[in-house]
Amino acid sequence: MEVLSDRPDLAMVDVSGVKRAINIGLLEHGSVVPGDWILIHVGFALSKIDEMEAKAALDFLESIGQAYEDEIAALRDSMIEEE
């Protein structure tokens, strides 16, 4: 995770290998640092979670199979190229 210097309410994060800008404005200012796990929904960071909770969520998503793979493919297709 990298907080964008020109937009402190946004951070660049890795979502299953896809870089995305997400809004971290709902979290306490300064409460997230690179390496933290965060729960994201529709582009917003909702809360910090620990690694075990993140792994459980990822395991669940992977267990639903093709729907998860389709979502990740859609994310990759919509990826914004960095300059």
Score class of each variant (00 low, 15 high):
G17L: 06
I24M: 01
S31M: 03
A67S: 05
I24C: 02
M52F: 01
N23P: 11
K48R: 09
R76I: 06
L10W: 11
A56E: 06
H29C: 11
D70W: 09
G30H: 03
E81L: 13
F60S: 01
A73W: 04
D9F: 13
E62R: 11
G25N: 12
A54Y: 01
I22L: 09
W37V: 06
F44E: 15
V18I: 10
S31Q: 03
S31N: 02
Q66Y: 01
S78N: 11
W37A: 08
E2P: 14
E83W: 04
E53H: 02
P8Y: 05
F44K: 15
P8M: 11
S31G: 03
G17I: 08
L26Q: 12
E2K: 15
H29P: 15
D77P: 05
L46K: 08
V32M: 04
E82T: 14
A73K: 09
R7G: 03
E82F: 00
G17R: 08
S31V: 00
I40A: 05
A54D: 02
F60Y: 06
L4A: 12
R20I: 11
A54P: 06
I72R: 01
E51C: 06
I40D: 02
S5G: 14
E2C: 15
L46I: 04
E83I: 12
I80R: 12
I40W: 05
